[in-house]
Amino acid sequence: MIRSRTKVGKQLLNVLAGVALVYLFVPIIFIVAFSFNKPRGKFNLIWQEFTWDNWLKPFSDPGLTDAFTRSLEIAAISTLIATFLGSLMAIALARYSFKGHNGFNFFLVLPLTAPEIVLGSSLATLFLGQNFVDFGLVTIVIAHVMFQVSFVALTVRARIRGFDWTLEHAAQDLGASPMRTFWKITFPLILPGILAASLLAFALSIDDFIITFFNSGSEQTFPIYIYGASRVEISPQINVLASIVLFASVAILAIGNFSGKRKGSGRKQRKLARA
């Protein structure tokens, strides 16, 4: 049904959309803006005056910097492991139907739906009870891989659901071994999906607080450090590092979006050519 909107209705819609956008962006703008603040005292909470100092010395707070690099390390390692495992799961799930297919699906969704507090505490009991590894880097990585793998597998699977498996037949028909077929045909074509999934996994790892909190022992990650420090000090460097993470992820997203769009339009053209 097509109904012409009244002028008032149209304007009201614009206002509402504007309010929604402001609601989404104000906190983010706040974070970035306060990275340029020169606070009086230990708490960067009230706007005083503009300064470049914080950005010129982003790593002046050694505790924060350590925690930040630790978080990057953990995210890098766990993302690598999770992307590898998750992608293999996704390919297997998308491509073959096997016994326990549905059960497997169910177990993949579980870590996404279970409350983090439950996952975190039960993992902690597992590590404590079995006593095979001390809390620290290893336990954090294990915990992160656990929930990342689900995200990666589900994201990659969604991206390769439309993959044309006859391309693999075509490659084999042209004399390519199964290995060559995978590396030359399947892998390059599903790579954008895998990259998107790994970005998501990386962000989840950097961001995670609850599960990490239960399994970190004395290890300080970025979120845990901020949580601990916020009671005694909120330095503007927190805002600087947070802004860096924000800009980096926006940039990566933009690049991914741009190349994805080009690929997408190509696919559309091909469909049109066929029709």
Partner: peptide, 13 residues
């Protein structure tokens, strides 16, 4: 032997 597939199956990349 080589095959020409129904939907051609050309490698899009």
């Amino acid at each position: 032997v080589n095959t020409v597939f129904q939907q051609y199956a050309l490698f899009p990349h």
